[in-house]
Amino acid sequence: MKLLSFHYHLKIKMDAPVSGHHFTLRCIPVSDSMQRILHLQYYVSPKDDLSSGRDQWGNALLCGCCHGQHTAFETDLCGEAVTGLSAGTPALSFEKERIFSFATPLTGADDALKEFSAGLRIRTGAPEEASAIMHAVHDALTYEPGATTVSTTAAECFGMGRGVCQDYAHVMLAVLRDKGIPARYVAGMLLGEGKSHAWVEVLHEGIWTPYDPTNCIVVSDQHIKLSHGRDAQDCTINRGIFKGNASQNTDISVIVTESEKDGKRLLW
């Protein structure tokens, strides 16, 4: 168990003024049986209107718009999270989670991935089996920023053998789903400094257990979850539409530090 403090900052710069900007942000962490979110504060700017909601998977949404002309858009989020409260989160009925065993366009297995999957003699999402898949995926890929884009599929990444956290997660999902094991994509933040992170949750006996194939570790208390879904598309942190002929430059920075180990506060 850890007390982490986090700071998430998203800044989009447009090279020409835009207007009629509507956006959906999926960057609000939610308390669940693994993490408890405390002192959450956020601001979004500029905005004329902001309302909160949930998507179909229960992720928190911030929906809003900005009518007037602007050339920058910013979101800032900070707070604390008590992490590692348990080893996983309880699932809904199998029938309701079954959709996560079906491949999506980003997580389909091609022949090469199917062969890779067939070589792993694994049938369930039990901890030792899911870990074996995670190790195999981790070993099959080399971490290389810039090798892939947000729309690279699991099969494309596997073919190149290179990618970033999103790709590691997609490849692991493709293997699990090829075996009919329900698994979902998780977007979140990781202890340290950097960008947003991604990992995978595997369903076994009514519990979703998180695995981080990029770092090859079972997730315990260094990760803060922001959202989950079928693949990265379901977890897009900022989805927007605006009027104007502008190209945009997105800058994300995430800082997660371990708060002072104050015994009293850890009692949460």
């Binding site: 959906t24 989805r239 539409i241």
Partner: peptide
């Protein structure tokens, strides 16, 4: 709704699906 379905849609209404979900 370009923010839930096809992001390329120019004939949709942003966030109508969120209002509907609520």
């Amino acid at each position: 709704d370009p923010l839930t379905f096809n992001p390329e849609s120019l004939i949709g209404i942003p966030h109508i699906f969120d209002v509907y979900r609520k």
